[in-house]
């Protein structure tokens, strides 16, 4: 039974990571869209250090 829930927990973790990356993607798209609309370049580089 515990093994089942370890599997469930790992799947949840992977899914959370996926959704987190999706949210990061949304943020990135909004970031670029708003900057373009404002006519400015992306003077800051998101996640440059990574």
């Amino acid at each position: 039974m515990v093994v089942k829930f370890i599997e469930f927990a790992l799947v949840t973790y992977a899914f959370t990571l996926l959704i987190a990356l999706l949210v990061a993607g949304i943020i990135r798209v909004i970031y670029i869209a708003v900057r373009k609309r404002a006519g400015g370049g992306t003077e800051t580089e998101p996640d440059k250090e990574l």
Binding site: V2, A9, T12, Y13, T16, A20, T44, P46, D47, E49
Partner: peptide
């Protein structure tokens, strides 16, 4: 400004929420 890094750190910090379940 740093969404990937912020969210990856947040996922790391959910270790307790995940590991405590089993």
């Amino acid at each position: 400004a740093k969404p990937v890094m912020s969210l990856l750190l947040a996922v790391c910090a959910e270790l307790g929420t995940i590991a405590t379940l089993p």
